[in-house]
């Protein structure tokens, strides 16, 4: 048996079911079993090669009822760069009004992923 063959168990976070996936890694090859659906396979391969997470936080807003505007990443963001993204967002200040889905930060940290407003916020 190849020495690089490793088995590990991870919990899928693609949906709230929380399937316990079995992953075998044979060099570049990732073999997944025990998944509840095909999204589990995608998640497991991503987790092995390029782990990503959805990021939700707030940015400062001026001229609105609240001091903060909730924002989120349009797609899962590289896990290792989350704190870098948070620091960037902490430096932003937007002006009301804002519409839900409006781009707050385009192509964040050159990942191609935009940060969107989570809600409308009127003046």
């Amino acid at each position: 048996m190849d020495k690089s063959l490793q088995t590990q168990s991870i919990i899928c976070v693609a949906c709230p079911k929380g399937c316990r996936l079995q992953i075998q890694r044979d060099g570049e090859e990732v073999l997944v079993s025990n998944q509840g659906c095909k999204r589990g396979v995608e998640y497991a391969i991503g987790e092995m090669k390029d782990p990503r997470r959805m990021v939700a936080t707030t940015v400062q807003i001026e001229g609105a009822r609240h001091p903060l505007l909730p924002v989120y990443s349009a797609a899962p963001f590289p896990k290792a760069r989350i704190f870098e993204l948070l620091a960037k967002l902490r430096s932003l200040k937007v002006q009301a009004p804002v519409k839900e889905g409006q781009i707050i930060l385009e192509n964040a940290l050159d990942t191609g992923i935009s940060i969107l407003a989570s809600r409308d916020m009127e003046q």
Binding site: M54, P70, Y72, E100, G101, S118, R119
Partner: peptide
């Protein structure tokens, strides 16, 4: 879709 709470409410 995987939405944040405020977007779901919106």
């Amino acid at each position: 879709k995987d939405l944040p709470g405020p977007a779901y409410a919106q």
